[in-house]
Design a protein around this nucleic acid. Structure first.
Lengths: 343, 343
DNA sequence: TGTCCATTTGGAAACGGTTCATCACTATAT
DNA sequence: ATATAGTGATGAACCGTTTCCAAATGGACA
């Protein structure tokens, strides 16, 4: 079983190598008859074109790069999985890299990918304020954390947050607090804006003033717990009856904080998260959350990269609607016995 | 800024292309002086060799493939992250693929990787009983779920389980139950064996018979909860005082089951998990667990693949010690008031 | 019948490196 | 002084495709 090359195929089929190449690339100018014969031989010999030789000449690698800050974040893990599937569906493979949320490493990874001559790059930029320098001529698209100077695709964070807070408001909640994400992160800021949007328009019952109450925190569990503890550490009459968290992980941390303080969920506190990670449906109580359409987002990113769809303009990311999934962590607020019977 | 080729470098440095190539590949037979000059020019021109041209001739791609069943499993996510880092440290990049735990897809992915001419493949085989057909001549190593006919590296599942159960026994527990993994899965079976190993040698106090009690379940949260509910649904005097779960996810599910039944943790029940996923340290109570040395495992897999270390023989996987991390979900059993005062 | 154009096919150059057989030049042995 | 071995650099062949140009074929039209 010697190595099969395009020459062997050509010889066996009685045609020139150029012709075989044309068959391989579905070039129109080949007689159906010849095409069939060549294909038969290819199949018979089990011939597979060498991707290196192919890429070297054609400048197309059928490879795309994906760079994310941290794979232990389940949200990114899901993104990577969806992106790989989307790429595979289009005949591309994925080179995966982690930036460990470090701008220097990120730049290095980008350079490596450029060196590999990938056809495009999907990146979730790391959080430190920095400009990512896209190797020019190489399509690059940011996901989730969209940057002003690059095309991006993301969930409609602001709209999603509005839906969440609006839902709480419609249930009757008025003292709705927010665990915001890290200030400076685009998704975090957008979600906070969505929260503020709704809070501003909320009708105040009988002269009671409604004020937004939020605290910034990292997106992880522990920060969520700290933030939750802080928000819930006030007299009952002032304590929020509902909390909108900017991530499921924060929400879960917040649930823990409430638990530690002896506040029952959802009777004493409604909590809504954001992201829709698998875990959100597996904890007790199951978390009401805003789920992001990951598959859609990943699909859009890949299609744009491969030119199957127009690349969104830098600064005008394409946004995808999120969906509210109501589960067990939220309900109507309990009527307070004799409002503000201040002891 | 025209394209820089090896020729430009050669010309500018006043040497032949062959010499530049040897400098690039750290070939010994180059005068330090010439080497320095060439390197200077390379740096000056910002020259980067084209990986395709390079691979085409040398048959080395500096690419390794990794195939896992499901990235939303945090354990695999961590594995991928560690593997990518290990590969990057050695100048290699990683092509990531998901098999969705489907043997047919897995075979397809393997074929794709072979076609890509990767230097090696790391795979966590999917669970369905099947033989994975390694493209011959291509180093392949199984991780975690080691298969009889392929080299593998994994945690010492059996030993780890022994440590866990031994720890519970030393605390004084005697009615120790086990949530085993899916029967047929190698890690699951090994962990169960470890459990049985210890149970068999346990000294029975005053004539009480000690019997192993286990139930098979999938590795996920929900299955853990179901199994936990089952194990705990018996009269107090017969109910396990400790449960060893084969995965952290099962353990967390089990915690939920205990919670639903009103059993306090750890006072009424000690729970020990397996894996050491990040989440295990973030729930309430924090989970006592056996953590796998992922970084070590990933490193070993990559090194073996790249020939930096001997490939373990098929059937004789190299095993890595796990470590017991005691946290809040385990403690001594409470003395039972008047043993079996059967009401 | 001769011309012209369109359609297929053949053949070779090109892609950008690596590798290998050779050669030039020293340093050492005879 | 001459033969010999050893070292470092050279230049061309080569890897397996794609792509471009030219040639062959055949049909339409004047």
């Amino acid at each position: 079983m010697a190595k099969r090359g395009i020459k062997d195929v050509a010889e066996r089929a009685g045609v020139a190598v150029g012709t075989v190449s044309r068959v391989l690339n579905e070039h129109p100018s080949v007689t159906p008859e010849v095409r069939a014969r060549v294909k038969a031989v290819i199949h018979e010999l089990g011939y597979r074109p060498d991707p290196f030789a192919r890429s070297m000449r054609s400048k197309v690698s059928r490879l795309i790069g994906i760079v994310i800050p941290d794979l232990t974040n389940p949200f990114f893990a899901e993104l990577v999985q969806c992106a790989e599937r989307a790429a595979a569906d289009r005949g591309h493979n994925v080179i995966f890299m982690t930036s460990f949320d470090d701008a220097a490493k990120e730049a290095d990874r980008l350079a490596q990918l450029a060196g590999r001559k990938v056809d495009g790059i999907i990146i979730v930029p790391c959080n430190s304020p920095h400009a990512i320098k896209a190797p020019k001529g190489l399509p690059l698209i940011t996901v989730d954390r969209v940057l002003p100077h690059h095309p991006g695709v993301a969930a409609d964070h602001r709209g999603g947050a509005r839906v969440a807070v609006d839902y709480l408001a419609k249930l009757g909640h008025r003292r709705i607090a927010c665990i915001a994400g890290p200030s400076g992160s685009r998704p975090a800021d957008d979600r906070l804006q969505g929260y503020l949007d709704v809070m501003r328009t909320l009708p105040a019952p009988k002269g009671v003033k409604i004020e937004p109450l939020f605290v910034n925190a990292a997106f992880d569990y522990e920060s969520g717990r700290t933030a939750g503890t802080f928000l819930l550490a006030r007299p009952r009459a002032e304590r929020p009856t509902a909390i909108f968290a900017s991530s499921d992980q924060q929400a879960i941390g917040c649930l823990r904080a409430a638990n530690d303080l002896g506040i029952p969920i959802p009777a004493g506190l409604s909590v809504v998260g954001f992201d829709g990670i698998p875990l959100s449906n597996l904890i007790t109580p199951r978390l009401t959350t805003i789920v992001q359409p990951m598959a859609q987002i990943a699909n859009a990113a890949v299609s744009s990269l491969l030119g199957l769809r127009e690349l969104p303009k830098a600064g005008k990311p394409s946004l995808f609607q999120c969906e509210l999934v109501v589960r067990e962590s939220s309900t109507e607020p309990v009527l307070e016995p004799a409002a503000s019977a201040s002891r």
